[in-house]
Amino acid sequence: MLIRRDTGIIIATLIIALLLTVLPMSDWLLYFRPQWVALLLIFWILTLPTRVGVFWSFFMGLMLDVTAGTLLGQHALSFSIMGYLVVELQQRLQLFRAWQQALSVWLLLTLERLLSLWVLGAAGQPTPALSYWFATFVGMILWPWLMILLRDLTRTLDIT
């Protein structure tokens, strides 16, 4: 029964992340939209490494592809590689201080963008402007706060 509730909460937060990804915003804010789904996935893998992993990342990437209208598999690919790295490095990442962790998260987010860029290029899309990389920095700045917020949430809901 407890397992069910945990999964429900993980799915709920990920759905909110998807929602934030397509929520309409004014044009100048568009390029500062953080990679919500990626951030949430990193958090859940760090918190529940035995539950959330590569398959979750792959599936969420697929859902993001469908929602955002990108090529099917674009985010599935980048998220599963990113998720794999987090699973592998999770024990080290958990020991890091907040700023070290934020920096590693920036690296992971940049890797995700890089893989997406590669897919865009392979599909014949033009190389996006420099603003393409802004989201990774927004994600890095956001990470400590998101971490605190979500950790509080998991503690209140007693998810370990």
Binding site: P49, V54, F58, G61, L71, L72, G73, L77, Y84, V87
Partner: peptide, 23 residues
């Protein structure tokens, strides 16, 4: 965790690549 995550990655990467090509 290590081996199983690697095995999963070995499954999802070809899957996403074939999805990309198919799409």
């Amino acid at each position: 965790r290590g081996t199983s995550a690697t095995a999963r990655l070995a499954l999802t990467v070809p899957l996403s690549l074939s999805l990309l090509v198919a799409d």
